[in-house]
Nucleic acid binder design. Structure first.
Length: 331
DNA sequence: GCGATAATAT
DNA sequence: CATATTATCG
């Protein structure tokens, strides 16, 4: 529709190791009246983020880095900051897009990025701020001012739900009730850990180490892993359910989920953003970490300035509530 | 259905 | 033996 009504002043952080393209992006974004900060170095960008997370509304990050892994970067950012993150790459395969979207990306832009696409990215900021309530955006003249409240963006679940440090759960104990509740954030960290190890290397102990959540036990991770695999199976092979046995097409990957590097998420329901959850299906741990096979857990937590200490939500007795949309939504 | 725990397996 | 995986419990 109209073209002059997108919010100006949106503060965008762009990360791309290609300085030339970084300039292109900067130019395009400035034409959109956004405020732009660019980094061609992931680590520097992360440092900047840790120091200025209150002043960044949106992140646009390329996912093809020589040494860094785009997926890990995305997971790092989305789990530690509640800032909408848009991913861009020259490769727009559905499976690739799926991989990033299921891991928290707000959008996926295929290079070369057109200015028309950038004109619309502000919607992700609003979507996140407004959160559950998605009211009919009249798209008219109410988008003029962004509520840049320093604490504005970060407040998805602040109430009595989760108390965390910048979006990352680091400890659980505080609300010592009885049963651990796997919240989205915690689950994300779990997924991030599983993904960074490989499918075959993702075992409770290592996952626990990577997650670095105090007082979380190996047993709890094991239990969650069990369910995770179970649900993964269910959605991976959707044929099931009294219909045609599907005798054609797919060569039937009978090798278990763990055996080798299974890939390709054929079917799946991805997510339902606004409401509450977003995780319904996960891309398999197969990833493109530079090296390839060996894990690199030692340095996984590259960024992360300091230690932490926060709480987490335990659930005492009442659980029949509206929790748990993690991976089920029933038919 | 969820997460904890017991029972097995590696 | 320690830890991973599966089964069962509440």
């Amino acid at each position: 529709m109209d073209q002059e009504l997108w919010p100006s002043g949106l503060r965008v952080l762009v990360i791309d190791n290609n300085s030339s393209y970084l300039s292109v992006m900067e130019e395009l974004l400035i034409k959109c009246s956004y405020k732009v900060t660019t980094y061609n170095n992931v680590r520097e960008a992360m440092s900047f983020l840790y120091g200025n997370k209150q002043t960044v509304d949106l992140i646009i990050c390329d996912v093809c880095f020589p040494t860094e892994d785009g997926l890990l970067i995305l997971q790092e950012v989305t789990s530690k900051f509640d800032i909408p993150t848009v991913v861009m790459s020259s490769n727009g395969d559905t499976s690739t897009v799926m991989k990033y979207i299921t891991n928290g990306a707000s959008d996926f832009l295929i290079k070369p990025v057109r200015i028309e696409e950038l004109k619309n990215i502000w919607q992700h900021v609003f979507r996140k701020q407004i959160g559950v309530e998605h009211r009919k955006c009249n798209s008219s003249q109410q988008v003029d001012q962004l509520s840049y409240g320093t604490t504005g963006i970060t407040e998805a679940t602040m109430d009595s739900e989760i108390r965390e440090n910048n979006g990352t759960v680091t400890d659980i104990r505080d609300l010592r009730k009885s049963r651990l509740s796997w919240t989205i954030q915690l689950h994300r960290q779990f997924i991030a850990a599983v993904n960074s190890l490989g499918a075959d290397k993702a075992v409770p102990k290592k996952i626990l180490e990577i997650m670095k959540v105090k007082h979380l036990t190996r047993e709890q991770v094991a239990s969650h892993l069990q369910k995770y695999r179970l649900h993964l199976r269910n959605s991976t092979q959707t044929l099931h359910k009294g219909g045609a046995p599907s005798s054609s097409s797919h060569p039937n990957n009978e090798s278990s989920i763990l055996g080798t590097q299974v890939n390709s998420p054929p079917n799946s329901l991805y997510f339902d953003q606004d409401g509450c959850m977003e995780i319904t299906d996960y891309s398999l741990p197969k990833d493109d970490i530079s090296s390839g096979s060996d894990c690199m857990l030692g340095e996984l937590n590259s960024y992360s300035p300091e230690c932490f200490q926060d709480d987490f939500r335990w659930d005492s007795e009442k659980q029949g509530s509206e929790t748990t949309y993690l991976w089920n939504f029933e038919a």
